[in-house]
Design a protein around this nucleic acid. Structure first.
Lengths: 322, 322
DNA sequence: CTGTAGCAAGAATTTTTATGCAGGGAGAGC
DNA sequence: GCTCTCCCTGCATAAAAATTCTTGCTACAG
């Protein structure tokens, strides 16, 4: 009975506040009540569902998928991009664009950026970054050596250098192969001052941009020459490895998979990656789905940028382990 | 192209803010942007209609009608109550309840309340007021003398006194008829100290509660005895009078209608009413529709409390003047 | 090139909003 | 009928949000 009168007044207050855009103090003066009461009425209006705030997702964005990923994998942030088709080329381009924007919008001054150089998606990202003022970022650190093929090596160097220029940072290159011929060869390579200096920066990185690799010989791995012997590959698969970040492997449950290979990799150790303030992972495509799943379960990824199709796959019922 | 990325981020910010209820500063920290930027993004989210706040009217309230009345008549506030049927009894009861709640909620400390005593609706209002602490209001001033019939006279006194008690105020009665027999008689009555003291308070009133009267002999006027001669009535109708507040008359356009009768009325002059900080008018019912329309056009009413049917009639196309 | 207008972002500041008391009933239970 | 508890309000103040100011760049014209 009296309730409707109370609600009417609350409704009126909500109307003045939200629809007419008036200040609480103004509403209070108008109605001869205190500002505190107006504030409380507005709170009550929310509780009573008199005011409802809805968020309408702009076309091309997928907040539900992003939320799903965040919740399912305990991920701090997820970015899901729209894709015309589930094909690697289209996916990489879109992921790259989105990652570039996110990086631009959220890059702090003085950051030390780590970049695992050999993902094509990261390349697409760099293509889309707008130049920033000099000194915006401090260093761009290459977190993984180049691959055997000198062309790819060059690409890696170029990518790091370009990203450094675009972010106004100083590039710190890792002029060494990603995989040394042997443990001994690695030790020799680490003797190089420049290599060591770069590697000493690994623990200072504040923002790491990584690709997620699939374990089965993907186009990139294949192209990179036969860095792994068949033996090593079977070691990895036997140990359950499903994917890698910076050539550090993990299984579908996100457990780190250590094999003798580890000692030959010249790149950021998993441990360092874990300590990085923000790890942004870029990956999409059907072939990488399970690798991404594993990567997310390692708990090292802070931001995943992926495509809508992969996001949906990642949210489908847990892959059954035979 | 890049736009969708920007909107995605804005959407995410809106989601965190509205859906997850996080603070702007927290969101800013999470996304490594400044709080100012979050604030601006939220503003943009409104502009872009990514967030929409809708107000759902509780059943029994009519914000559209209230808004319509406010806008059509330049009225500061309107209260429209739900009514089961368009019958005077039901209408008065509901208006009374609503007015009582509004008064309770918005009465300031130390107010001087004026009450034009002879509306049944005001009576219903007083019936619904909960007692307030002593001294909440300062005075309750009777703004119109009683009517010829002593019974009604008593009612007027009682109403004023009760309202005073309920608001913790001191009653200031006008122990005189509402309409004196002649100008001279009025002067004599004004000689009374109590009457004069009460009338001197008219200009101090901060909140006036008035009924709106219809000019044609309504039940109340009829019941109150023949206070007007047929001549006086025709004077009024000839001058275009359509209704009154405190026996001060106006036409359909809200112009004040002065007739010789004015000099015989013992009550608050229109001029004083205009100067009152808040005038709350209570009226509803088919018969009063046009009187209310005129009253609103006088520009003296600050809050109108009426019923849904009358509100709709008041919002229908302007009455055509033949 | 150099000058100038126009943005955009963050830090600082102001403005606006929310909330922790404290006082004063109202209503329930004894 | 009386006490106790709970709730409501306003004031004062803390917290949060918006805005102003400043800086540093971009883009365009001369």
């Amino acid at each position: 009975m009296a309730r409707v009168n109370e609600l009417r007044l609350i409704t009126r207050v909500a109307q003045m506040y939200y629809t007419e855009g008036r200040r609480q103090a103004e509403i209070a003066r108008h109605l001869r009540i205190s500002q505190a009461t107006v504030s409380r009425m507005l709170k009550k209006a929310q509780q009573e569902e008199i005011v409802r705030t809805t968020i309408v997702a702009p076309t091309g964005t997928f907040p539900e998928l992003e939320t799903g990923l965040r919740e399912t994998y305990g991920l701090p942030e997820a970015i899901v991009v729209e894709c015309a088709e589930d094909s690697p080329g289209s996916i990489m381009a879109r992921i790259g664009e989105a990652a570039a924007h996110f990086l631009e919008a959220t890059l702090q001054s003085g950051e030390i950026i780590g970049v695992s150089s050999w993902s094509e998606t990261i390349l697409k990202m760099v293509d889309n970054i707008h130049p920033m003022p000099a000194g915006k970022a401090k260093y761009v650190v290459q977190t993984l050596g180049g691959m055997g093929d000198p062309t790819v090596q060059t690409h890696a160097t170029q990518l790091t250098t370009r990203l450094a220029r675009l972010t106004g940072a100083e590039p710190r290159l890792l002029s060494a192969p990603g995989v040394a011929q042997s443990r001994e060869a690695k030790l020799v390579l680490l003797g190089d001052t420049y290599v060591r200096e770069t590697m000493e920066l690994f623990s200072k990185i504040t923002l790491s941009i990584v690709g997620i690799g699939a374990i089965e010989p993907s186009s990139m791995l294949a192209r990179s020459g036969n860095v792994f012997t068949p033996n090593e590959l079977s070691d990895l698969t036997d140990a359950g490895a499903i994917g890698d970040m910076c050539l550090r492997f993990f299984d579908l449950d996100g457990n780190i998979v250590k094999t003798p290979l580890d000692d030959r990799v010249i790149g950021m150790p998993m441990e360092d990656l874990t300590n990085v303030d923000r790890v942004i992972a870029l990956a999409g495509g059907k072939a990488k789905t399970e690798s991404i799943r594993g990567a997310l379960r390692t708990g090292t990824v802070d931001v995943l940028v992926t495509d809508e199709f992969t996001a949906r796959r990642l949210l489908e019922a847990r892959t059954t382990i035979p």
